[in-house]
Measured scan of single mutants.
Amino acid sequence: HSLRVHINGKDFEVHNADEHVIRALEELIRRGADADELKEFLERWKG
């Protein structure tokens, strides 16, 4: 899957995101994670 996440006016393109990554991202958003947390998660995932 390809996923586009809009954080703090920046678009993050997440390519080849598997279900696990997408679910983790949705969980963060549901918990009310702020932009920094989401960005950190995506950067860690992209490795």
Rank of each mutant, 00 (worst) to 15 (best):
H1Y: 03
H1I: 11
H1F: 03
H1S: 14
H1N: 12
H1L: 07
H1K: 06
H1R: 03
S2N: 11
S2T: 14
S2Q: 07
L3C: 12
L3T: 05
L3D: 06
L3E: 04
L3Q: 04
R4L: 15
R4F: 11
R4A: 15
R4V: 15
R4C: 09
V5W: 04
V5N: 00
V5M: 02
V5K: 00
H6R: 06
H6F: 06
H6S: 14
H6I: 12
I7S: 01
I7Y: 06
I7D: 00
I7H: 03
N8S: 06
N8W: 04
N8I: 02
G9P: 00
G9R: 00
K10N: 07
K10P: 00
K10A: 06
K10L: 05
K10E: 14
K10C: 03
D11Q: 09
D11C: 04
D11R: 07
D11S: 09
D11H: 12
D11L: 15
D11K: 09
D11F: 12
F12D: 00
F12G: 00
F12E: 02
F12L: 04
E13W: 15
E13I: 14
E13C: 11
E13A: 05
E13S: 06
E13K: 03
V14K: 00
V14L: 10
V14G: 01
V14C: 02
V14Y: 06
H15L: 12
H15K: 07
H15N: 12
H15G: 04
N16T: 11
N16Q: 06
N16A: 08
N16R: 05
A17K: 05
A17N: 03
D18P: 15
D18M: 05
D18F: 04
D18L: 04
D18C: 09
D18R: 04
E19R: 08
E19T: 09
E19I: 14
E19W: 12
H20E: 08
H20G: 10
H20Y: 12
H20T: 14
H20W: 09
H20I: 11
H20C: 04
V21Y: 03
V21N: 02
V21S: 05
I22S: 02
I22K: 06
I22N: 02
I22F: 06
I22E: 04
I22P: 00
I22A: 04
R23N: 11
R23D: 06
R23G: 07
R23V: 08
R23E: 09
A24R: 12
A24S: 08
A24D: 09
L25F: 13
L25C: 00
L25P: 00
L25K: 00
L25A: 02
E26N: 09
E26P: 00
E26Q: 12
E26K: 14
E26F: 12
E27S: 08
E27Y: 07
E27P: 00
E27R: 05
E27C: 05
E27W: 06
L28E: 05
L28K: 02
L28N: 01
L28Y: 05
L28I: 10
I29W: 06
I29T: 03
I29H: 04
R30N: 13
R30V: 12
R30K: 14
R30W: 10
R31V: 11
R31S: 12
R31M: 13
R31I: 11
G32N: 09
G32D: 05
G32E: 05
G32I: 02
A33D: 02
A33N: 03
A33Q: 03
A33M: 06
A33L: 06
D34S: 13
D34E: 13
D34Y: 05
D34H: 10
D34A: 10
D34P: 07
A35Y: 15
A35W: 14
A35R: 05
A35K: 05
A35E: 13
A35L: 14
A35V: 15
D36G: 08
D36L: 11
D36A: 11
D36Y: 10
D36P: 06
E37S: 08
E37A: 13
E37F: 07
E37H: 08
E37Q: 13
E37Y: 11
L38F: 11
L38M: 09
L38H: 00
L38C: 03
L38I: 13
L38Q: 01
K39Q: 10
K39N: 14
K39I: 15
K39F: 15
E40C: 04
E40V: 12
E40R: 13
E40P: 01
F41L: 07
F41H: 05
F41M: 09
L42P: 00
L42Y: 14
L42V: 14
L42N: 01
L42K: 01
E43T: 05
E43A: 10
E43W: 04
E43S: 07
E43L: 11
R44A: 14
R44D: 13
R44E: 12
R44Y: 12
R44F: 12
W45A: 02
W45N: 05
W45H: 10
W45F: 11
W45T: 03
K46A: 15
K46R: 04
K46C: 08
K46F: 15
K46I: 15
G47Y: 08
G47Q: 13
G47D: 14
